[in-house]
Protein backbone atom coordinates (compact mmCIF):
# COMPACT_ATOMS: atom_id res chain seq x y z
CA UNK A 1 0.00 0.00 0.00
CA UNK A 2 2.92 2.32 0.72
CA UNK A 3 4.27 1.98 -2.79
CA UNK A 4 0.83 2.24 -4.40
CA UNK A 5 0.15 5.45 -2.42
CA UNK A 6 3.49 6.89 -3.55
CA UNK A 7 2.74 5.92 -7.16
CA UNK A 8 -0.73 7.53 -7.06
CA UNK A 9 0.58 10.69 -5.37
CA UNK A 10 3.25 10.96 -8.07
CA UNK A 11 0.70 10.35 -10.81
CA UNK A 12 -1.70 13.02 -9.50
CA UNK A 13 1.18 15.49 -9.09
CA UNK A 14 2.43 14.68 -12.62
CA UNK A 15 -1.04 15.13 -14.12
CA UNK A 16 -1.18 18.51 -12.40
CA UNK A 17 2.19 19.50 -13.85
CA UNK A 18 1.04 18.33 -17.31
CA UNK A 19 -2.28 20.23 -17.22
CA UNK A 20 -0.72 23.35 -15.72
CA UNK A 21 1.65 23.83 -18.66
CA UNK A 22 4.64 23.98 -16.29
CA UNK A 23 6.32 21.13 -18.16
CA UNK A 24 7.00 23.71 -20.85
CA UNK A 25 10.23 25.65 -20.17
CA UNK A 26 9.11 28.35 -22.62
CA UNK A 27 6.19 29.19 -20.27
CA UNK A 28 8.32 29.09 -17.15
CA UNK A 29 11.00 31.34 -18.68
CA UNK A 30 8.28 33.77 -19.75
CA UNK A 31 7.06 33.93 -16.14
CA UNK A 32 10.48 35.36 -15.28
CA UNK A 33 10.43 37.69 -18.29
CA UNK A 34 8.55 40.55 -16.65
CA UNK A 35 10.22 43.05 -19.02
CA UNK A 36 9.40 41.04 -22.15
CA UNK A 37 6.98 38.27 -23.13
CA UNK A 38 5.55 37.88 -19.61
CA UNK A 39 3.24 34.88 -18.95
CA UNK A 40 1.82 34.90 -15.41
CA UNK A 41 0.67 31.24 -15.58
CA UNK A 42 3.15 30.01 -12.97
CA UNK A 43 1.62 32.26 -10.30
CA UNK A 44 -1.80 30.69 -10.96
CA UNK A 45 -0.29 27.19 -10.73
CA UNK A 46 1.30 27.97 -7.37
CA UNK A 47 -1.91 29.62 -6.22
CA UNK A 48 -3.96 26.51 -7.07
CA UNK A 49 -1.45 24.20 -5.41
CA UNK A 50 -1.21 26.34 -2.27
CA UNK A 51 -4.99 26.51 -1.81
CA UNK A 52 -5.10 22.69 -1.68
CA UNK A 53 -1.98 22.16 0.46
CA UNK A 54 -2.78 25.02 2.86
CA UNK A 55 -6.13 23.45 3.84
CA UNK A 56 -5.24 19.82 3.00
CA UNK A 57 -2.14 19.76 5.22
CA UNK A 58 -4.09 21.30 8.11
CA UNK A 59 -6.68 18.53 7.89
CA UNK A 60 -4.15 15.72 7.40
CA UNK A 61 -1.75 16.88 10.13
CA UNK A 62 -4.55 16.70 12.73
CA UNK A 63 -4.14 12.91 12.54
CA UNK A 64 -1.77 11.30 15.01
CA UNK A 65 0.14 9.63 12.17
CA UNK A 66 -0.03 9.00 8.42
CA UNK A 67 -2.06 6.05 7.07
CA UNK A 68 0.99 3.95 6.22
CA UNK A 69 3.76 5.39 8.38
CA UNK A 70 4.76 5.91 11.99
CA UNK A 71 4.95 9.70 12.02
CA UNK A 72 4.84 12.80 9.83
CA UNK A 73 8.28 13.70 8.46
CA UNK A 74 7.84 17.46 8.62
CA UNK A 75 10.98 19.65 8.74
CA UNK A 76 10.94 21.75 11.92
CA UNK A 77 14.14 23.73 11.33
CA UNK A 78 13.80 27.51 11.43
CA UNK A 79 17.47 28.13 10.72
CA UNK A 80 18.10 30.80 8.09
CA UNK A 81 21.70 30.19 7.07
CA UNK A 82 24.02 30.71 4.15
CA UNK A 83 23.24 27.27 2.76
CA UNK A 84 19.52 28.07 2.54
CA UNK A 85 19.96 31.51 1.02
CA UNK A 86 22.93 30.69 -1.21
CA UNK A 87 21.39 27.40 -2.36
CA UNK A 88 18.03 29.01 -3.12
CA UNK A 89 19.71 31.91 -4.94
CA UNK A 90 21.69 29.46 -7.09
CA UNK A 91 18.61 27.33 -7.74
CA UNK A 92 16.84 30.42 -9.09
CA UNK A 93 19.80 31.22 -11.37
CA UNK A 94 19.72 27.71 -12.85
CA UNK A 95 15.92 27.79 -13.14
CA UNK A 96 16.14 31.14 -14.96
CA UNK A 97 18.69 29.66 -17.37
CA UNK A 98 16.99 26.35 -18.13
CA UNK A 99 13.28 26.92 -17.40
CA UNK A 100 13.09 23.43 -15.90
CA UNK A 101 12.92 22.63 -12.20
CA UNK A 102 13.06 19.09 -10.79
CA UNK A 103 9.30 18.87 -10.06
CA UNK A 104 8.41 19.70 -13.66
CA UNK A 105 11.27 17.83 -15.34
CA UNK A 106 10.63 14.43 -13.68
CA UNK A 107 7.08 14.12 -15.11
CA UNK A 108 8.29 15.69 -18.38
CA UNK A 109 10.60 12.69 -18.79
CA UNK A 110 7.46 10.76 -19.76
CA UNK A 111 7.15 12.81 -22.95
CA UNK A 112 10.34 11.12 -24.15
CA UNK A 113 12.10 14.37 -24.99
CA UNK A 114 15.91 14.15 -24.89
CA UNK A 115 16.27 17.72 -23.59
CA UNK A 116 14.48 16.66 -20.39
CA UNK A 117 16.78 13.69 -19.89
CA UNK A 118 19.80 15.94 -20.46
CA UNK A 119 18.52 18.47 -17.90
CA UNK A 120 17.87 15.77 -15.28
CA UNK A 121 21.29 14.17 -15.84
CA UNK A 122 22.86 17.61 -15.32
CA UNK A 123 20.75 18.20 -12.18
CA UNK A 124 21.87 14.83 -10.76
CA UNK A 125 25.47 15.85 -11.49
CA UNK A 126 24.68 19.03 -9.53
CA UNK A 127 23.43 16.94 -6.57
CA UNK A 128 26.68 14.94 -6.70
CA UNK A 129 28.79 18.12 -6.81
CA UNK A 130 26.90 19.48 -3.79
CA UNK A 131 27.58 16.24 -1.90
CA UNK A 132 31.30 16.53 -2.70
CA UNK A 133 31.86 20.27 -2.18
CA UNK A 134 29.21 21.07 0.45
CA UNK A 135 28.46 17.87 2.37
CA UNK A 136 25.41 18.08 4.66
CA UNK A 137 26.10 18.78 8.31
CA UNK A 138 22.82 17.44 9.64
CA UNK A 139 19.74 18.82 7.86
CA UNK A 140 18.43 16.50 5.15
CA UNK A 141 16.94 17.72 1.91
CA UNK A 142 13.16 17.84 2.12
Amino acid sequence: MKLLSALISGLVFGIGISISGMMDPAKVLNFFDIAGTWDPSLAFVMGGALVVTFFGYRIVLKRSKPMFGDYFHVPESKMIDRRLIGGSALFGVGWGIAGFCPGAAIPALGTGRWEVALFLAAAIAGFALRRIFAPAQKAAVS
Binding site: M46, G86, G87, F91, G94, A123, G126, F127, R131, A140
Partner: peptide, 17 residues
Protein backbone atom coordinates in the same frame (compact mmCIF):
# COMPACT_ATOMS: atom_id res chain seq x y z
CA UNK B 1 24.60 24.65 -17.30
CA UNK B 2 21.13 25.37 -15.89
CA UNK B 3 20.70 21.74 -14.82
CA UNK B 4 23.94 21.56 -12.86
CA UNK B 5 23.21 24.87 -11.10
CA UNK B 6 19.60 23.79 -10.35
CA UNK B 7 20.82 20.49 -8.89
CA UNK B 8 23.59 22.05 -6.80
CA UNK B 9 21.46 24.95 -5.57
CA UNK B 10 18.25 23.06 -4.80
CA UNK B 11 20.22 20.40 -2.95
CA UNK B 12 22.20 22.99 -0.95
CA UNK B 13 19.07 25.03 -0.17
CA UNK B 14 17.12 21.87 0.81
CA UNK B 15 14.35 22.30 -1.73
CA UNK B 16 12.96 23.65 -4.97
CA UNK B 17 9.61 24.86 -6.29
Amino acid sequence: LGGVIVGFGASLGSGCT
